[in-house]
Amino acid sequence: MTPWLIALRAILHREALRFTGQRGRFVAALVRPLVWLVVFAAGFRAALGLSITPPYQTYITYETYILPGLLGMICLFNGMQSSLSLVYDREMGSMRLLLTAPLPRWWLLLCKLLAGTLVSVLQCLVFLGIAAVWGVRFPVMGVLAVLPALLLTGLMLGALGLMLSSIIRQLENFAGVMNFVIFPMFFLSSALYPLWKMREGSPVLATLCGLNPFTHAVELIRFSLHLQPALPALGWVLLATLAFGAAALRGYDPARGMQGKTLKGG
């Protein structure tokens, strides 16, 4: 095995160990989408009439509709949280150590993004299990088919988080990211309502939703979960992942998180 792969395996392993050792974090991450699935969906179901649109071939419950969006939400929160920690606070010490490894910086950052994505995918799988118990229906093989979509979505959002926290000084804390990134991305997407429904309300907002990469990630998850191809969405997500990744790599500067913190000492 090459040193690159040895490092990748170790970083993924470490993240998995940390994840399994922090059950509180795991449960907390599932509470948010569960509230949406159980409470919000129950209240919203009556207000929103859904027609039959691909990939669905029959009328579906609202819970079925929002499930891909909630999987996207898990990736969105996780991606932002773990990327922010690569620049500020929580992971700073271990990032300093990581960056002194004799490997290219882009590879080390990719390994960290993959490790964060691995955690998101595990959470999504557990959430899919809970949703199935709750009565949401999807093909069993869809669980396998959705894995690459979740992986790509996790990478795209992790890269976006890294890019934003690298270049925007104000995004030092999670509250800022919630208000300026997570909420706009989530609500301006097809996670909670189909785009045609949004277009009825506001064509401008529907256009913004169409430009939002998170919309395409949700559609990629939706189509994959229902074993349907979604090449345009896949193309969008791939392009966005490459663009965000390149910008993140260019903008990533460990000095950002350290200035005024660790360098006070000397």
Partner: peptide
Amino acid sequence: LMYFAALHGLA
């Protein structure tokens, strides 16, 4: 320790 060793290509 094993984590650090792996970062330096030792496995």
